[in-house]
């Protein structure tokens, strides 16, 4: 666990990791056109507005795609599943994560999931997902 790479928050992403440390999932939202913007950028990809604020999302989504990796990578012992979760707030609003309570070989596209938080360092909680 200790050799898992940890995020290095920067001025554009700090809000995200500060929120997960509070066990909340926040995504930037354009205050002009209401588009959710992920990964965090200082301007909205839909309307170019610079008026973006973090807003809490439901944490519910579905598995958009997945891969079961059969070689070890830093912090992970094979086999393990990596998923792309599409959040229910917006088509195409996706994040990379893991599903904690499903064996890797049972992960499927379309599986409904919801966020759960796991501490990986004193100041870092990762947004992972469980089946719902």
């Amino acid at each position: 666990m200790s050799d898992r790479p940890l995020p290095l928050p920067d001025p554009e992403t700090a809000f995200f990791w500060e929120a997960t440390a509070r066990r909340q999932l926040e995504i930037l939202r354009c205050q002009t056109c209401k588009t959710w913007v992920h990964y965090p950028k200082p301007s909205c990809w839909n309307c170019s507005s610079g008026d973006l604020k973090p807003e809490q999302v439901s944490g519910r989504g579905t598995v958009y795609s997945y891969t079961v990796t059969h070689q070890d990578v830093p912090g992970y012992t094979a086999p393990f599943a990596v998923v792309i979760v599409e959040l229910e707030e917006q088509a195409g609003l996706r994040m990379v994560s893991n599903v904690v309570d499903v064996p890797p070989e049972d992960v499927r596209i379309g599986m409904p999931v919801e966020v759960t938080f796991q501490p990986v360092a004193e100041d870092v909680w990762l947004p992972l997902f469980k089946k719902r």
Partner: peptide, 20 residues
């Protein structure tokens, strides 16, 4: 990504989840 360090940029949303 190498072991045991902080990951910058977009990779901070992938490498911590076993997706480097």
């Amino acid at each position: 990504i190498g072991y045991g360090f902080r990951v910058p940029g977009d990779m901070q949303f992938r490498a911590p989840f076993g997706d480097p």
